[in-house]
């Protein structure tokens, strides 16, 4: 079984071809946010490098967010279109979980996070089961970092908490203020998602995957205009 995996949910562009227990190839960059321009050529090159014709794929794995709305959409729209046009299963994987998988084997709490502006973060918490899978403790959400950190302190008990993600740098001070030495930070290569993890996860879930048409991003937030409209509707100040 060969799976093509894609993550474009933030600044990182990562694509991989995974075969059963092996990662055949992976390309990851963390510099330019022009995924629309670069992603499909990156996939084409990877397919050529692994001598894979698209028809030989058994499925697609894709990070479905949370993350940059546009970034996530490029990945999801591409993945569902490839899957639909080849009649392949497609599996959506949490973009946070993809990053958390970098810490497989870590004994304590794993907390990936992406900045979500105005003091908020997209985050969740995980623990590692052995060296090859994660259990979800707190489902992914958008939350104020100031609310999230005490929650994590309670959840961790005395254990340490490993924070992962490219945006951890910008919040490190706040995290250390609240958690002190309980908070751990990883070396740089742990902070960006790797499509190889997504491909591996997807491979295990190909059987249970749904219809390509039904694959949609997980934004975790309504579009601003929708949220406003709903709030006004609840106040009774607008009609449908």
């Amino acid at each position: 079984m060969r799976v093509l995996a894609i993550d474009t949910s933030n600044l990182v562009l990562s694509v991989a071809v995974v075969e059963d227990e092996r990662v055949l190839a992976e390309t990851t960059t963390n510099q330019q946010k022009n995924h629309s321009v670069r992603m499909m050529d990156a996939i084409s090159e990877l397919l050529d490098a692994t001598n894979t014709s698209p028809e030989e794929l058994s499925g697609i794995g894709v990070a479905i967010g949370p993350g940059s709305y546009t970034g996530v959409r490029i990945g999801v729209a591409s993945a569902k279109s490839i899957a639909w046009s080849l009649n392949l299963p497609v599996v959506g994987v949490s973009s946070l979980q993809a990053v958390a998988m970098n810490a497989l084997g870590f004994a304590d709490l794993i907390v990936p996070l992406f900045d979500a502006r105005r003091g908020q973060v997209y985050t969740g918490s995980y623990t590692s089961r052995g060296l090859d899978s994660l259990d979800v403790l707190e489902k992914e959400r958008i939350i104020l970092l100031q609310e999230w950190l005490p929650l994590m302190r309670d959840r961790a008990g005395g254990r340490s908490i490993l924070f992962l993600g490219e945006d951890v740098r910008m919040h490190r001070q706040t995290i250390e203020q609240v958690l002190g030495e309980q908070a751990l930070f990883a070396s740089p290569a742990f902070n960006h998602p790797r499509a190889a993890h997504i491909g591996y996860l997807a491979m295990q879930r190909l059987q249970e995957s749904g219809d390509a048409h039904a694959l949609v991003p997980e934004y975790l937030q309504l579009a601003e205009a929708e949220a406003k409209w709903l709030a006004q509707k609840q106040e009774g100040s607008v009609k449908e």
Partner: peptide, 20 residues
């Protein structure tokens, strides 16, 4: 609208690549 355009462009490119 750039975000809107990108969805159609991504889908078109994906099908183009997948099916040659």
């Amino acid at each position: 609208l750039v975000g809107a355009l990108l969805v159609g462009v991504a889908a078109a490119k994906a099908i183009s690549l997948a099916r040659g």
